[in-house]
């Protein structure tokens, strides 16, 4: 399911209580995501409900994992996760928590930092990699891989010191795992 479809569900199921989105996104400030589509005043903005549902649907992350986080949009489609609260909107700050999810596009995409931070709670669409495959993944290499899960964004995981640890985000299509680890995070381990 795409982000548009997910948001679309809420919008279609709504009645005349829904506010007409009137404002446009201001890339210079942090705006808290509305709880649901009913609360939305900025066109195209993701809702908290949709974001939490997306992590549950795609990766099986229990929504309770995000209970202590607020979500904010700064920069078109860029959603941030912050452990705490701030005035809404918040101006004149450079970052609040971590960049978390890219929205306002057909397929929402988690950041590698978010996959590492919250990926331990993932129960599906994780791909377990052996040592060599894990090294290639964090070096930024794409690799052919047989896997019978859903195409789309996945979380690569491997074993470190007796723990299954998320490596970052990949894109699985046509029998290939593409590493989405950003250049600055790629390492020759």
């Amino acid at each position: 399911m795409t982000a548009d479809e997910r948001d679309g569900e809420a919008m279609q199921s709504n009645d005349d209580r829904e506010q007409e989105p009137t404002d446009s996104n201001d890339g210079q400030q942090f705006d808290r995501l509305p709880e649901t589509a009913t609360d939305r005043t900025v066109e195209g903005r993701a809702t908290r409900e949709a974001v939490v549902d997306w992590w549950e649907e795609r990766f099986g992350v229990d929504p309770a994992v995000f209970d202590d986080h607020t979500f904010w949009e700064k920069g078109a489609g860029k959603v941030w996760a912050f452990a705490g609260d701030l005035p809404n909107p918040t101006r004149d700050v450079e970052a609040a928590g971590m960049t978390f999810l890219r929205t306002r596009q057909e397929h929402w995409k988690p950041t590698t930092d978010a996959a590492q931070r919250f990926g331990r709670h993932a129960t599906r669409n994780t791909i377990r990699l052996g040592e060599d495959a894990a090294k290639r993944f964090v070096a930024g290499d794409d690799q052919d891989l047989d896997w019978d899960g859903d195409w789309g964004y996945v979380i690569g995981v491997h074993d470190v010191a007796g723990r299954e640890e998320p490596l970052g985000v990949g894109l699985y299509v046509y029998g290939e795992l593409k590493s989405m680890v950003p250049k600055g995070r790629q390492r020759d381990v």
Binding site: G84, V93, E94, A96, M98, T111
Partner: peptide, 17 residues
């Protein structure tokens, strides 16, 4: 600063300039 907070999975930081 931003790179390191995110890399270390910190989410309670507000960065100001």
């Amino acid at each position: 600063l931003r790179f390191n907070t995110e890399r270390l999975g910190v989410t309670n930081t507000v960065v100001t300039n």
